[in-house]
């Protein structure tokens, strides 16, 4: 699920960036630092949409670095248990398959794949129904439901299922 929230961060800026472009430098550094990171609490920071305010800088002893408290608005992505996501399959093996929904990795184990789909090893490992009409392989797009999340401080990993109504392949690359 996506959220638009306000976060705060203390930015350290090297003295060489001081000058009339200080603010721009600060913001670009913030984007570089923050976008794409993941915190267990808020999820993945997808994009910074605006700066709320930049506090007074504080020169640190010893170094010339200045610390600015910056409040910024950003879009975060946080997967939840029970959420339905669309994801791209990245790897298929005997144990199940891995998929990615943006920055999130999701594992679907083989007992959460419908029983009528069998694993086919070979050049392109895949899961196929007995009549061959549905095939899950690398780069397939699937709709899945998250049934568990593992949230670490800097990492979120999910396991999902496609063994439910309206879940499964939504776009088959080989058919296209």
């Amino acid at each position: 699920m996506f959220f638009h929230i306000v976060l705060e961060r203390n930015m350290q800026l090297h003295p060489r960036h001081f000058g009339r472009n200080l603010r721009e430098n600060l913001v670009s550094k913030l984007m570089k630092d923050v976008e794409g990171t993941c915190s267990g609490r808020h999820g993945f920071v997808v994009a910074i949409t605006g700066i709320e305010n930049i506090g007074k800088g504080l020169i640190r002893d010893g170094t010339g670095f200045v610390t600015f408290p910056v409040k910024y608005q950003c879009v975060v992505f946080r997967p939840f248990k029970g959420e339905i996501l669309e994801a791209v399959v990245t790897m298929v093996n005997k144990m199940g398959f891995f998929a990615e929904a943006g920055p999130v990795q999701i594992f679907v184990s083989n007992h959460l794949i419908p029983d009528d789909m069998e694993f086919q090893s070979g050049d392109v490992p895949n899961y196929t129904t007995s009549d061959g009409s549905v095939k899950i392989q690398k780069d397939s797009e699937v709709r899945l439901k998250i049934i568990g999340t593992r949230v670490d401080a800097t990492e979120i990993f999910c396991i999902g299922t496609i063994k439910d109504d309206f879940l499964g392949v939504i776009n088959d690359p080989s058919a296209a």
């Binding site: 144990m95 049934i147 990993f157």
Partner: peptide, 22 residues
């Protein structure tokens, strides 16, 4: 449905869940 698959090592009988898959 909604069960987290568990894996077990036959040698040292250590257990893992699907959440460790990565």
């Amino acid at each position: 449905k909604n069960t987290v698959q568990e894996y077990i090592c036959p040698n040292c009988s250590r257990r893992y869940t699907a959440l460790d898959a990565l």
